[in-house]
């Protein structure tokens, strides 16, 4: 009989490419969870260390020459400082998370494992930025709670606090991605951290009201998006700001939208990612 040689139809349907739909939900979720697990795995370094450092800063500035007695614009200095420190910690950690993730993946070569799966540029941007955003917010929450033990922080405008916390973490996560994609070696990203992120997060009003700056620098501060992040976030706690809140909220939103487009473009064109 030749029937044994005949091709028989397989039982069931033949395998077909999986239909992903407009958004690859499973892929996006997997990428996000990978980014979050990456920092939770070493939580001493990624959550506890920043919390301790922000507490130490608080202690130094509270103790340094009558810091407890000093006031800024009618508010106890310590209440002025605490929100600034939380914001600074969030910014530095959101940046560190995405930049290190991308640079390490590039240097070790496993970036292909992220680029090969059926994830669009928008999904890549969201997944990785989501990891940085989560780290920023978690670190902010941890240092906020730790400070609350010593300084009674009372939310004045909770929605604004959330708005600025999310936008700050997102901004720095996106900056970290742009920096990570641009950097070719660890040196490059270390230089960006040391010479751009640290100075800007320190000098944008974390520790002092910009009224203390010379007039020229006060004007310059209004072109610095980090200043609006710190100022708006602090308003959420103490109800006093150095700048207009509406302007700040719009600037922050605009900067985030442009950064999102930039990072999306980098992934889409494969800039320094695909040979």
């Amino acid at each position: 009989m030749s029937g044994a040689m005949e091709k028989r139809p397989l039982p069931g349907r033949p395998p077909a490419p999986r239909i992903l739909g407009p958004v690859n939900g499973l892929g996006l979720w997997t990428l996000y969870v990978k980014e979050v697990r990456r920092f939770l795995n070493v939580y001493t370094q990624t959550l506890l260390a920043p919390m301790i450092v922000s507490l130490l800063f608080l202690a130094i500035f509270a103790l340094a020459l009558g810091g407890l007695r000093r006031q800024v614009g009618g508010i106890d200095y310590i209440h002025f400082l605490a929100p600034g420190l939380i914001m600074m910690t969030m910014m530095q950690n959101a940046f560190a998370n995405t930049s290190s993730s991308i640079v390490i993946a590039k240097v070790q070569g496993n970036i292909v494992d992220v680029l090969m799966p059926p994830l669009s540029a928008a999904e890549l941007t969201c997944g990785i930025a989501g990891g940085g955003l989560t780290r920023g917010v978690m670190v902010g929450l941890a240092s906020g709670l730790a400070m609350w033990v010593f300084v009674p922080l009372r939310p004045h405008a909770p929605l604004l606090i959330v708005y600025y916390a999310v936008n700050a973490s997102l901004m720095l996560a996106l900056l970290g991605m742009a920096g990570g994609i641009w950097a070719e070696k660890f040196d490059h990203i270390a230089a960006v951290t040391n010479f751009v992120i640290t100075p800007f997060s320190f000098l944008s009003g974390t520790f002092y009201s910009i009224e203390r700056l010379p007039p020229g620098w006060q004007l310059a501060a209004h072109f610095n998006p980090f200043f609006y992040l710190i100022d708006g976030f602090r308003y959420g706690f103490i109800g006093r700001a150095d700048s207009s809140l509406w302007l700040g909220a719009l600037v922050v939103l605009g900067v985030n939208a442009s950064l999102w487009l930039l990072v999306h473009r980098m992934f889409a064109s494969g800039y320094r990612l695909k040979a």
């Binding site: 340094a64 810091g67 100075p199 520790f207 002092y208 700056l213």
Partner: peptide
């Protein structure tokens, strides 16, 4: 350098 600047500006 950051520490020095921040202290000068906030206490000074």
């Amino acid at each position: 350098l950051m520490f020095l600047a921040v202290f000068e500006l906030s206490i000074g």
